[in-house]
Design a protein around this nucleic acid. Structure first.
Lengths: 224, 224
DNA sequence: TGTACATCAGTGAACGCGCGTTCACTGATGTAC
DNA sequence: TGTACATCAGTGAACGCGCGTTCACTGATGTAC
């Protein structure tokens, strides 16, 4: 392991290479194209080779999903850290980062928020409620970041005091919903406002939607 | 055609039977289980029979999707018509109906809002922007209903005047986002509020989330 | 009403496909002496 | 440093599977006379 040089140990770092191949396939060919054989092909290796690194396809997919969540969380935390000013500013930046990530990495986004790609739930009555799956925990990271920031908004007296959960849930739902509608195409073409003419897929229109919705949301959450 | 009696013409009404079988499969076995052969099996017919009614699998799926959208739109319009009082009441009822539908028919909901199940977009530069696909049009019905009701809220001086689009978009995104998170399981188990203990899958918790979010949304949209 | 014929819905065998997974193997790498 | 051996990453053939789709067929239904 300590002897990895160029080319390294046999292939070198096949495990990492397989994960990278998986990410590339997911982003280029979509989730449908994510097969074990294709991953191996992309990594330049025989189709049986991945079995030395992943027990089966589900394990590979789970690892990929966690990778996506990690980079997603990093993006959100980056936006949070890079934004000066009020907590409301920060919340807006997080929402914008959320939407940007979804639009730039649509299939990664799908991979994260779709359960049916992953293994059938291992019914384990022992640890059942005690521990979420790694993916389950990762799925809440975005929410937790938003919750923190909502609490900060309360502390700055911008949001009404009390249980922050409804506020944070609403914020998450709104941003996630817009992301979903955009990523899955329901809002991407044609007219969203009947009689308003063709909207097309123009990025300005999408930017306008994001801007409108996040502003409406932020104003709505403010203390009255 | 006019001579259909019991048992009818050969099978009778295989086309309808196939669609119903498809809906049942989609609701029982999920979208993965929706194969042409399984549909035929469920309808009690050989696997080649569907080809007399649908050109290929994609056409069957499109027809199914439209059926789901129809019943969805009917549900929403029903909620709208059945709810007395202010337009705000009605908007709340629509949101609740939206969420109830998604939770009761999760796979129908997925079928409607997921593009990758349908045919690769036929690139038709002629009618390109002119006409949306039937499914594309159906996908906006929910939004249109919400838009109407938002406009009614403005007319009753409950919502701020001006372009209703941002308000309606926000409402749609919020409701759709919560529906998506619930249906895809991100919110269904474990704790949404870290440190708040286990939430479990209890329906009361889900009802509470729906209630919290729709209330927060409605209050947020109100004129200040 | 009865007969001959055309139509058309459903059958069952067959096709090729890519998939996930298994298995005996081979050959490169690391290690003990 | 050199040799013998154990380990382990990657190979390639093979498996069974269910899928979408095609095709020649058959047998029931409807229609013309």
């Amino acid at each position: 392991m300590s002897h990895i040089r160029e080319g390294g140990y046999h292939h070198g770092d096949l495990k990492r290479a397989l994960l990278e191949a998986g990410l590339q396939i997911v982003s280029e060919r979509g989730i449908q194209g994510l097969t074990l054989r294709e991953v191996a092909r992309q990594a330049g290796v025989s189709h049986a080779a991945p079995y030395h690194h992943f027990a089966d396809k589900a394990v590979l997919i789970e690892a990929l999903t966690i990778k996506c969540f990690d980079s997603f969380a990093e993006t959100l935390r980056g936006a949070l850290a890079a934004t000066p000013g009020s907590a409301l500013n920060k919340l807006g930046a997080i929402g914008a980062a959320y939407l940007r990530f979804a639009l730039e990495h649509p299939t990664a986004f799908r991979l994260m928020y779709r359960p049916e790609l992953r293994k059938p739930i291992p019914i384990d009555p022992e640890a059942a409620d005690e521990e979420r799956t790694p993916v389950g925990r990762a799925g809440l990271t975005a929410y937790e970041i938003m919750l923190e920031t909502v609490v900060a908004c309360q502390q700055e007296d911008l949001f009404p005091p009390g249980d922050p959960t409804p506020l944070a849930l609403t914020a998450w739902a709104t941003v996630h919903g817009l992301a979903t509608l955009l990523v899955d195409g329901s809002l991407k073409s044609g007219s969203a406002h009947p009689g308003a003419g063709q909207m097309g897929v123009e990025p300005e229109k999408i930017a306008w939607m994001i801007e409108s919705v996040t502003r409406t949301l932020a104003v709505g959450l403010l203390k009255r």
